[in-house]
């Protein structure tokens, strides 16, 4: 199945205005034709509806994510998915999307990819010896730069009550590959039409956790993640974990609490893997998840206003 990745996450939320402002402050922009469709630069994004909107598919356990829409390469892939899933479940077309449900009880849909190509380079570091450098006088960081916008929807992490069943569905029915795995927790999975380390991560969890752990968008590089995250914190949003860099996937991360009942991450620079990659297995733990973790410091040298006991006393 030539599935290319996630394209749209549809949420049914209790406080639509707060959720919308959260995503605008995160860096998404509203679609010209729908203020509640919030987009990254490539057109992937989030759709918001009131939680009681009867047109939304149901979700387990009060989960606010009501539908995960994936892109596919072409109409033939859409047909192939319709035939495969039609063997044992209802599949129907809604607004050009093929909609059904996965084996963990989450509504899923597929559409011929609507992502726009992004003719943008990523963050370039002036590493000595590297043939690729920033041109002279191009700055690596601009403190007062304009809004930092996420480039593309990255990945989604589900809590699933029956991990083996959920994994079989994505791998055997939809043709995802396992790229790495946390032992006893779950796999990072990649669809056949993407090289990204993961577009989904499945976590086996008790039934009362059934839902979403986080979703995230890719930014242009670590500087964008950290600069944008710092602005987010300054705007009053609450960081949960980060900024740091994961080991599996190598992506830079910064996780925030959110009004969506799950975490929302900012990420950048995820590894790409093809089908020659051999999955790794590691026990879950902070040491296995973070290569390093950074810490903010407001004051970094003594000077006027330094407390009697020094900055470390703050």
């Amino acid at each position: 199945m030539n599935i290319t990745g996630l394209e749209t996450l549809v949420f049914g939320v209790e406080d639509l205005a707060a959720c919308r402002q959260y995503l605008l402050d995160y860096g998404l922009h509203a679609a010209a034709d729908d203020p509640n469709r919030l987009l990254a630069l490539d057109g992937s994004g989030v759709e918001l509806y009131p939680a009681d909107d009867a047109s939304l598919p149901s979700a387990p356990n009060g989960c606010q994510l009501r539908l995960a829409v994936m892109g596919v390469a072409d109409e033939a892939t859409l047909q192939a998915i319709a035939e495969e899933l039609g063997k044992d479940r209802e599949v129907h077309r809604v607004d050009g999307r093929l909609q059904s449900v996965d084996d963990a009880g989450f509504a899923i849909a597929f559409q011929v990819s609507r992502r726009q190509p992004l003719p943008l380079i990523g963050e370039i570091s002036n590493a000595p010896g590297s043939p690729i450098q920033r041109v002279p006088n191009q700055l690596g960081v601009v403190a007062g730069r304009e809004a930092i916008q996420p480039r593309a929807l990255s990945h989604l992490v589900y809590f699933v009550p029956d991990l083996a069943k959920a994994e079989r569905f994505y791998v055997e029915r939809l043709g995802f590959r396992v790229t790495d795995r946390f032992d006893g927790v779950g796999p990072f999975i990649q669809p056949a039409g993407s090289l990204e380390h993961h577009t989904h991560f499945l976590i086996g969890a008790p039934a009362f956790m059934h839902g979403v752990e986080h979703f995230t968008f890719h930014f242009g590089g670590p500087t964008e993640v950290i600069q944008n995250g710092s602005r987010f914190v300054k705007a009053g949003y609450q960081a949960f974990w980060g900024p740091g860099r994961h080991i599996f996937g190598s992506n830079w991360f910064w996780y925030f609490n959110s009004p969506f009942g799950c975490h929302v991450e900012m990420d950048a620079d995820m590894d790409l893997h093809d089908n020659t990659w051999r999955p790794r297995l590691a026990p879950l733990g902070a040491d296995a998840s973070q290569a390093f973790l950074l810490r903010r410091r407001d004051n970094w040298m003594p000077g006027p206003g330094t407390p009697e006991n020094g900055d470390y006393a703050n």
Binding site: E14, D15, A18, Y22, M209, G211, E213, G236, Y237, Q238, F240, F256, N257, S258, P259, G261, C262, H263
Partner: peptide, 21 residues
Amino acid sequence: AWKRDAYLSPDGRQVMCHAHG
């Protein structure tokens, strides 16, 4: 909280952890 002082559920009746609900 998910934002400064945002410690309550949307209906305001319960304290809510906005990490895992």
